[in-house]
């Protein structure tokens, strides 16, 4: 099999593969930076919780209009935001910490979602909602994903400074501007939007995979915000492309394959990256003198 047939032909020959690839790249552009920010805010698992929380909203959308991405997407955004807001409210007004209240809400939310889907749909529908089907992405879905990515990148560019400041030293931002919660809220909205975008492609359970795995990979390789964003996006793009190629040739389900490729890159990074496990075990030469600034 020629290299062309291996790497290019699937996309040259089939429209659905092209759409899947573009969707992956769009997802990577939005989810990469969001994943890094989630990790820096020590909210890695909150992303996971939110992805589950999206389910009942999507399920209601599914009940109302069947497998339509816009309806399920809107439902997902509403449900995800509701859980995020409620968790924030609970952690501020009770002694429960935010992660504990997130866990309580998302589990309730997930159970409700599965119940709603099982009320009407078959188990095939449930599988579709839980695990997505990137190869069935149509033009409408593609436009939705692209729009969410655009909104994400533009919003991040605008609120970048206060968002990072709020991440690094929330007390300071509260003192100088007093609007820290607003940026936190906007950020949570972006998280939910990106989960909804990843939802059609990878399903509710794995949408968060394209956020957190590339972010973890980036943290192992580089320091500094721009580099972290770049490596995270690149890792997500590579995972999307390689995952699609492998799933096409081997006849595997595309969503899990994409996430598994990302997982593979993570394991590789664990071994090979500068801050990974393997390098630490090897004796490394150190500098003779302190580095000058």
């Amino acid at each position: 099999m020629s290299l062309h047939a291996l790497l290019v032909a699937p996309f040259a020959d089939f429209g659905f593969m092209r759409r899947a690839l573009i969707a992956c790249f769009a997802l990577a552009l939005g989810s990469g930076p969001i994943g890094i920010l989630l990790m820096l805010r020590r909210m890695s698992l909150v992303g996971d919780a939110m992805s589950h929380a999206v389910l009942p909203g999507a399920a209601v959308g599914f009940l109302v209009s069947g497998l339509s991405l816009p309806a399920m997407g809107i439902g997902g955004v509403v449900a995800g935001l509701a859980v995020a807001l409620l968790s924030g409210l609970v952690s501020r007004s009770t002694s429960l910490r935010e992660d504990a209240s997130f866990a309580s809400f998302y589990l309730t939310s997930l159970a409700l979602g599965v119940l709603i889907v099982s009320l009407r749909g078959s188990s095939v529908d449930l599988l579709h909602v839980l695990f997505g089907s990137i190869l069935a992405i149509d033009n409408a879905a593609l436009i939705l994903v692209g729009a969410i990515t655009s909104v994400t990148l533009l919003t991040l560019a605008v609120i970048y400074r206060p968002l990072i400041a709020e991440c690094f030293d929330p007390g300071f931002l509260r003192a100088v501007s007093g609007r820290g919660h607003l940026y936190h809220l906007l950020f949570l909205l972006l998280v939910v939007l990106n989960l909804v975008a990843g939802f059609q492609a990878l399903g509710t359970l794995m949408a968060v995979g394209l956020m957190m795995l590339p972010a973890a990979v980036a943290q192992l390789w580089v320091r500094g915000m721009p580099a972290l964003f770049a490596v995270s996006i690149a890792t997500a793009c590579i995972s999307g492309y390689a995952g699609l190629v492998i799933s096409y040739h081997q006849g595997l389900a595309s969503g899990p394959t994409i996430i598994l490729v990302a997982g593979g890159l993570y394991v590789l990074s664990l071994l090979a990256a500068p801050s990974g496990a393997f390098r630490r075990l090897l004796p490394r030469r150190h500098f003779a003198k302190r580095m000058l600034p």
Binding site: L40, I164, F168, G171, F172, G224
Partner: peptide, 12 residues
Amino acid sequence: PQVAEIDRTFPL
């Protein structure tokens, strides 16, 4: 703030 309240590994 007390220094323990700030994450000094933050990539800035």
